[in-house]
Design a protein around this nucleic acid. Structure first.
Lengths: 152, 152
DNA sequence: GGAAAGGATGTTATGTTATAACATCATCAA
DNA sequence: TTGATGATGTTATAACATAACATCCTTTCC
């Protein structure tokens, strides 16, 4: 993410939190910024390492608390299969996403596919299950890496 | 799972491994049996605890190696969102499942829903992403627990 | 302003999940 | 029997996550 876009996203997050009456404190903002600035998902401990530059001697709970807050607000997503987190670039509306996780280059793309959500909801209705949080993560190879393998 | 069904599943696993030319050793069999006998998913360390009854002083790699083998053979599934494992009751054909995970009673049901798989595949084709392993886990409340809450 | 309440953070310790690295043992084929 | 391969044992440690309690900051109310 370039600097301009990052500023936009941070401003958006500020506004969102103000509107909701919750506090995007310095710590939380730092964690969110680090995630958004990274083009790859970051584990809590990677975030911790990068925080050492700014804050002095942060401990794991510092990061996990900030992540809990950001997850609640929909500003970040957790990738269960990677034990890692990504910033969400469109947190304005509550949503559930699907993630395409490339095992080659490590890039993750977030998508919001209506057909997938529909099919999940149909299955729920059939079974009577009430989903609170769907986890959909596709582990594989992205288009670019797949192409490299074919040509290379 | 009752004892008769468990015996059947174990026999099935034996046959499957023989057919594939891979070895369902004592350790692997034990891990598989513990998972199948449990009505809830088990973490690797829970399995380890239960193994202490039989083997003397097993260490984590013992369990993780057995799990790796069983995962490869499709005899067990990993639930990423729980850091836990479940036995698969129909490993004959390779398949990818979806899991309904009840946060109340802890029960997990495995389903193989064609419509969901279709919608995932459609999304893949649209993006050029090649999925090796789809993770679909719905966290919520099962029908029974939901009913209890309404009436209770 | 000052006190009380609630939320956020700091700090220490520990729990939980997972793997690296190397030694040993078992199985099977040549 | 020997060599190759795969499975297991063993020790240590890496990586991920939270409990528990102290402290501090912010807001509200008097």
């Amino acid at each position: 993410m370039n600097k301009k876009k990052l500023t936009e996203v941070l401003c958006g997050a500020e506004q969102l939190c103000r509107k909701r009456g919750v506090r995007l404190t310095a710590r939380r903002r730092t964690v969110f910024e680090l995630l958004c600035a990274s083009d790859k998902p970051l584990s809590a401990y990677k975030i911790l390492d990068r925080m050492r530059v700014a804050a002095r001697n942060p401990a794991p709970p510092t990061v996990y608390r900030a992540l809990d807050f950001l997850l609640e607000q929909g500003l970040v997503h957790k990738l269960e299969s990677l034990h890692a987190f990504v910033g969400c670039t469109h947190p304005e509306h509550p949503h559930s996403s699907q993630f395409l996780i490339c095992g080659d280059c490590g890039e993750v793309s977030e998508m919001e596919n209506e057909a997938i959500l529909q099919s999940l909801q149909t299955a729920e209705r059939a079974t009577g299950f009430k989903t609170r949080h769907p986890v959909v993560e596709l582990l594989g190879t992205c288009a670019q890496c797949a192409e490299k393998h074919q040509s290379g």
